[in-house]
Amino acid sequence: MTVSIYAVIGLVCYLIAGPFVGGFLAGVDRRITARMQGRFGPPIMQPFYDVRKLIEKEPVTVNSGQDFYVMCFLVFVIITGGLFFFGENLLLVIFALTTANLFLVVAAYSSNSPYSQIGAERELLQMMAYEPMVLLTAVGLYMTTGSFRIGDIVAGGGLENGGIPLQYLVGIFIGYIFILTIKFRKSPFDLSLSHHAHQELVKGVTTEFSGRTLALIEVAHWYENVFLLGFIFLFFQNGTWYMAVVGIVVALLAYFLEIFIDNAFARMKWQFALKSSWIVTITFGAVNLILLYYLKGLM
């Protein structure tokens, strides 16, 4: 196992800068959202102030078990992101992410409180809705670059003439953007956990968490968001620095797009969330893969 210097840099940057970038993006999100709604909005650093305030609160909990699960959630989100930025196997990253999310679900279930449990079930529903598309994204990247290893994908292996994966994966890309709305917990798919006060269930999964525990969940989400955007980055890589810049820019644009969608749609029912994401997964993701399979046969 040869460890490349870029992998180490990627890992260290993610571990240290990840939450700051994630928190900063969250601040930008709140500001832009406010502007879209005709408000002025909080300062960009507000998410950090919020977390600091949460940490200072009196430590209370509803049972002695849930803090453990939340800690595991954070640990596994960091492991997941760490594996991603270290350049490990994409499928491994996806599976580790599932494990991380499941800790959050179990934390919510463990309280045995009505709102928490509804939130937890919806969280599971959302995982079920987005997971096929995320897996197909990995498969698509593998079929174009010949590797599941993120390090190889970023290095542009397997593609000729400086091509980027996106040129074969437009459908997959659209599908991934679609399910990113779910992953970012944006309306119309913010079923389990929302930041809009007008929804029928606002903080489903996190109802029973407070203080420091809630702060941990916030930080975990920041970590998570950064590497979810990292997936978009991968679509543009061919090993050159300028495509790396393009990748970052498009990832930020995608983030903006999600904020826009968030403010443009009302929450949909769960049936719509599940069916629409699966239909998109099939019509864009699966069809793209099948075409790619034939294409590869022809190449």
Binding site: L102, S111, Q117, L135, L136, V139
Partner: peptide, 26 residues
Amino acid sequence: VLMVVFGSAVTVFYWGKWLGKLTAIV
């Protein structure tokens, strides 16, 4: 591949909700 990705997504759902029931502290 297509069948596996959908099947495994659903697998997470049905085990997850059972797991949740078991961990609930009543």
